[in-house]
Simulated scan of single mutants.
Amino acid sequence: MLSSRRLARARWVQKTVGVIAAEYLRFVHLTSRTVTVPGDIYERAGADLPVIIAMWHGQHFMAPFIKKDGHKAKTLISRHRDGEMNAVAAEWLGVETIRGSGNHGGEFHQKGGVSAYFQMLNALSEGYNVALTADVPKVSRVVGPGIIRLARDSGRAIYPVALASSRRKVMDNWDRTTINLPFSLIAGVVGDPVRVTAKASESELEDARVTLEAALNAATERAYAIADRKAEDSPRG
């Protein structure tokens, strides 16, 4: 008999789960109302395209639906077993994937980080928006240095993005993984872009890291306030 662990590694199982997850997210999107703040963000960001999209771990499941028609997008997804299912879901929803993950100890090669880093640089140079979670694995809500270096080396701006739904299930794990539920009000909040110059010093890189962390926290707080109708500009009814 196959063990549950071996079964979960089977390609057909991963693909099936990934497709089901993607269609579930599509159902959430279709049955929910979405509010974007600022409302003209696509026009504002137009001159910066392609951009780096930063999100927190566990808060990113609805991200494929922020892609506009005509925009090319790739997302960084880990090589872990769960990452395989996430990759299937992302690709099913029209977002190409780059496989690899960061390492807060800096040993990028252990998880395919070097290859993934250069793939992200290449994608940006080819006009793809690149989305990734900014916090390093197992250290929630702390921005790692990798995304800041990506901005420095690519010359592209980082846009902090938060998505929150009024109906949700929050898991009791390290990144507070949030399962968005159907028939929600979904708030998408985008903070001011963070820019890093090619000649940024180590202290300037750290300043950018702290700035991005604060921007992501602020966007997340506002997204949840709007979704929960606690913000002054939350839609009524």
Rank of each mutant, 00 (worst) to 15 (best):
T36P: 03
R236D: 13
V114R: 07
P50D: 06
Q59K: 13
R156A: 04
R149D: 12
G70W: 09
G39T: 07
V189K: 01
D192E: 15
H80G: 12
A54Y: 02
G112I: 09
Y42N: 06
F61V: 07
N103Y: 14
W174S: 13
A8I: 10
A219N: 02
A164R: 01
R11G: 10
L181D: 04
S4E: 12
W12H: 15
A208T: 02
A63Y: 04
R195P: 01
S234I: 07
R141T: 06
M62L: 15
R222L: 15
A225Y: 04
F108L: 15
W12K: 13
H57T: 05
A87K: 01
H104A: 13
T177Q: 11
R33K: 14
T31Q: 07
G70M: 11
R156I: 06
Y24N: 04
D233K: 08
M1H: 14
N86M: 13
V142E: 15
F183I: 09
A22N: 04
I66G: 00
S201L: 10
V143L: 06
D192K: 05
A73H: 05
V17S: 02
R152H: 08
Y117V: 05
M62N: 03
V190C: 04
E221Q: 14
E91N: 14
L124P: 03
P235L: 10
A90W: 01
G105N: 15
K67Q: 12
V17Y: 04
I52N: 01
G70Q: 13
K67W: 08
A157H: 07
V28D: 00
G94W: 02
F27R: 09
V37K: 04
T97K: 05
K74D: 03
R209P: 00
V17L: 10
E206D: 15
R195W: 11
I226H: 01
L150S: 03
S115P: 04
E202C: 11
P145F: 10
P193T: 04
L212H: 01
T177K: 06
V196N: 01
E206M: 11
S3I: 11
N129V: 09
V88E: 03
N173R: 13
G46H: 12
W12N: 14
L49H: 08
A47N: 08
A87W: 00
D228Y: 04
A90F: 06
V88L: 07
A22G: 08
D172Y: 08
D207P: 03
L132H: 03
A116P: 01
A225L: 14
R149W: 09
N86T: 15
L2N: 13
Y159L: 06
Q59F: 06
I186M: 10
G18R: 00
S201P: 05
I226Q: 01
D172S: 13
T197I: 09
F183E: 08
S115V: 12
T133L: 02
P160Q: 08
T178S: 03
E126I: 05
A164W: 00
G106L: 10
I53Q: 04
A208W: 00
I66A: 02
S3W: 13
T133W: 00
A22T: 05
S115N: 11
A219L: 04
A223V: 05
V161L: 12
